[in-house]
Amino acid sequence: MLNADVVAALLWTLLLGATYWLTLDFPPGPAGVPGPGYVPRLLVVVGLVLAVFLFRSGRRGQVEAVNWRAFGKDRLLRAGGVVGLLFLYTLLWGRVHWAVLSTGFLFLVGLVLKLRAPVALATAVGLSVTLYWLFRGVFHVML
């Protein structure tokens, strides 16, 4: 039975494997003292034990299934839209003037969240301008 816990246990094992593989390059410590790789490898071992537990409890089927559909198409679309916009925003960070980028981002987020267009625009402009002034002007952050 392939449920969330079983999948998580497998992904976790993969991650631990990759971590272990990366530690192979680490230099050994001085005599008698653990080096940079010691604690990470220890953690990989502990992690594997935990993976076994998670896998077993998953096989036994004691999982509360997360029913994404239960949230409803509407809310999923909204959350997905926000994640997508945030991704674009992060991607464009530093490439477009901050105040312009932020206004656009916030306006679109407002629309995705089903705010009325004037409210969304007012929120976007208000927040961007205030924060730009606050962080750029008062805190000297390089926005």
């Binding site: 926000v82 945030l86 925003y89 992060t90 960070w93 530093g94 932020s102 981002f105 916030l106 987020v109 407002g110 969240l113 089903k114 705010l115 409210v119 929120t123 976007a124 927040l127 961007s128 924060l131 962080f135 805190f139 952050v141 390089m142 926005l143």
Partner: peptide
């Protein structure tokens, strides 16, 4: 409205993350 609060949190989170070290990687 809570939608407005969410919008504010999103933007403050990004600016706040960046402002600590002026480092775009922190936004990621």
């Amino acid at each position: 409205r809570k939608e407005v609060v969410w919008t504010a949190v999103l933007i403050l989170s990004t600016v706040g993350s960046y402002a600590i070290n002026n480092n775009p990687l922190d936004v990621w």
